[in-house]
Write a protein that binds this DNA or RNA. Sequence first.
DNA 1: GCGACAG
DNA 2: ATCTTGTCGC
Length: 306
Amino acid sequence: MSPPAGIDTDALARPEFLPDPDRSRKEMESLQRELAASATFVDDLGFGPDAVAFDEPADLSAGLPPARTEALGELDANPDAPVVVGVDQAFRPERDEAVSAAVAFRGGRVVEYAEAVTPLSIPYVPGLLAFREGEPMLAALEDLSVAPDFLVCDGSGRIHFRQAGIATHIGVICDLPSVGVAKSLLCGEPDEPVGERPEGWSTPIRADDSVERVGGLDEDRTGDDADVGTDPPGTDLPVVGHAYQSRQYPNSRRVNPLYVSPGHRVSPETAVDLVAALCAGYKLPEPTRLADAHADRVKRRLGGDE
DNA sequence: GCGACAG
DNA sequence: ATCTTGTCGC
């Protein structure tokens, strides 16, 4: 049995990574370097893509599916399935508040919806998103009564100037495996051009000059020195994530790929494999898609203004 | 100085 | 992210 423990609130133990209006940009950047150094971009999960795979997308036409608490029970078909949690946010610009949502799944079923409304204290700055939205995300996670085994965050993880995107912040703070799923590329360079690609296609994103290298963090690089010079150009650069074509129309090229990167305790390769398994017919992985819908629902319930 | 930049 | 109707294409 797994008692509803929710998140191990280590968040309070790492206040340095939470928003502080008085902190300078330089200070936030060095905190991220510190955080990247304590992050792990190698597999440390205890389960694989098959354990979290969705075989059917949720039907949202009549609203979100009800949470099935019984899916947590011992009579569940797959009692050992990991708890996957998708997190996303909606905003109330007029009030400068974030509405964050966390949706927990087990065996492909929703087991809990959680949410939080949080005042925003820091503006959006590319590269410093976690200092604006990290607190709200944690608030939604702490509203959960089930303990997550894996977090799917919207935004980048290792695909980040200091290899510490919001998925990395959240993963390290909670000490949970996490991945970042972004709809556009923050930095880095794809091995191949990212256009007109078939469903299921993916290509590595490698660190470019805009990505700071983190000491002791690149030992997960593939190949050894003997390969240098024989590999294609750029192959010696560290892979920080992947572009992944989760959806595509047969006779059209309009859908852009997803940019998947490890947050914490996962490798770039496993991160894409996990996200591929979480996708069930739509562009976004199911956890993210439902978290997005739940955040919108909560926002609507709160009302258009005041 | 110019460009580029998750949500 | 948010402001927003209809509309082009599978």
